[in-house]
Lab assay of single mutants.
Amino acid sequence: QRITLKDYAMRFGQTKTAKDLGVYQSAINKAIHAGRKIFLTINADGSVYAEEVKDGEVKPFPS
Rank of each mutant, 00 (worst) to 15 (best):
Y8A: 03
V58L: 11
K54L: 15
E52M: 03
E52K: 01
A44I: 12
Q1T: 14
N43K: 12
T17A: 11
I3F: 15
S47H: 08
L21H: 00
P62T: 05
K16Y: 02
I42L: 09
E51P: 00
N43S: 11
M10I: 13
I42W: 07
V53G: 04
P62E: 05
S63E: 13
A50L: 03
Y49G: 06
G22L: 04
G13P: 01
D55P: 06
K37S: 13
S26A: 11
S63H: 11
K16Q: 13
E52F: 03
E57P: 03
I42H: 04
K59N: 09
K6W: 10
Q1G: 13
P60G: 06
G13D: 02
P62Q: 05
K59E: 09
T4S: 15
S63Y: 12
D55E: 11
T41I: 15
A50I: 03
L5I: 06
A50M: 03
G35C: 07
L40N: 00
A50P: 02
P62C: 05
A9F: 07
F61N: 01
P62L: 06
Y49V: 11
Q25H: 10
L5G: 00
V48C: 06
V53H: 13
Y8D: 00
R2I: 10
G46Q: 05
A44N: 11
I28R: 00
Y24D: 15
R2Q: 11
V58Q: 06
R11S: 07
H33C: 10
T41E: 07
G22P: 00
Q25I: 14
L40G: 00
I32T: 03
A18K: 02
M10W: 08
P60N: 06
D7I: 05
S63V: 11
V48W: 03
D20Q: 09
V23S: 05
Q14E: 14
T15D: 15
S26M: 09
S26N: 09
A18D: 01
D45C: 05
K6R: 12
F39C: 07
A9Q: 08
I42C: 07
A50Y: 02
I38S: 00
P60D: 05
L5F: 02
R11D: 04
Y8L: 01
I28Q: 00
A44M: 11
E57D: 11
D7N: 07
Q14R: 12
Y24I: 12
K59I: 15
F39V: 07
V48Y: 04
D55Q: 09
G35R: 10
L40Q: 00
A18V: 03
A31V: 07
E51W: 07
A31M: 11
K30E: 15
I42N: 03
S26Y: 11
L21G: 01
F12N: 07
I32W: 02
G13F: 01
M10E: 15
S47A: 08
K30A: 15
I32H: 01
V53A: 08
Q25K: 15
F39I: 08
G13M: 01
T17N: 01
A44T: 10
T17Q: 01
K37D: 14
N43F: 11
I32D: 01
G22W: 04
A9G: 03
Q1Y: 13
G35K: 13
V23Q: 03
Y24G: 15
G22S: 05
A50F: 02
G22R: 07
E52S: 03
T4G: 08
R36S: 07
I28N: 00
A31E: 02
